[in-house]
Amino acid sequence: MNIIVCIKQVPDTTTKVRVGKDGKHIDPGGVKFIVNTYDDFAVEEAIRLKERFGGEVTVISMGPERVKEALRMCLAMGADKAIQLWDPAFEDSDPYTTALILSKAIQQLPYDIIFCGKQAIDRDTMSVPVYLAELLGLPQATLVVKLEVDPNARKFIAYRDIEGAKEVIEGLLPAVISTQWKLNEPRYPTLPNIMKAKKKELKELNAAALGLDSAQVGEKGSRVKVLSMELPPPRSKGKILKGDPREVCRELVRLLREEAKVI
């Protein structure tokens, strides 16, 4: 099977994020970047399919030089090839243009199934996999927690947890599958595989190589743009009421009603 995984490099959850000077981006200085948590499930599922049915796993990511580190991590986990998509014109791409750029790269490759994490933990838009399926004209299954694939019948069965129920859907391959955290347990890359990762192919493609012109991508091609970004206000100090329990209760109820307006 030819398996493709789209990944994003995001700030580590333990990193302290600061907003940059322009008020629209995070300040990347001092930020530790990791492979998006949900993409780990996508990579793991892809490698398991390869181990079962044979074939090749190609990992793709759009982003600047630093995303190579994330791609190498996926190669160390067991992916076979990696492609970095970058061009200065890609800066400030929205989910639609990101999916467009990814789709152009994928169209140059043979593929039977495409995996994406269900969302990136930095921007949380959950829309790239959906756009991608549309742009490629493929069936899709989102937030998948269990997957069965039959490469001969060219079919998949996907299990989804929906509000209060489980849903089982069947579809034709090729398809776009977005992965949810229960799907599998991502492996740690082994030390020998980390050493082998350096020797695996890591290709770079820019706008021209993808047949895109700068008006289609980046902020120009985007359908939504970020106006501003700010950190949540620091939590204000709690209030401690002291005194006679009766009085304190009465005051608490008054504050909940009049100040907090929750009762």
Partner: peptide, 14 residues
């Protein structure tokens, strides 16, 4: 090197 960092990060995570 890139590999040395990846190796350290892998064991660190473990």
């Amino acid at each position: 090197s890139e590999e040395e960092i990846l190796i350290r990060n892998t064991i660190r995570k473990f």
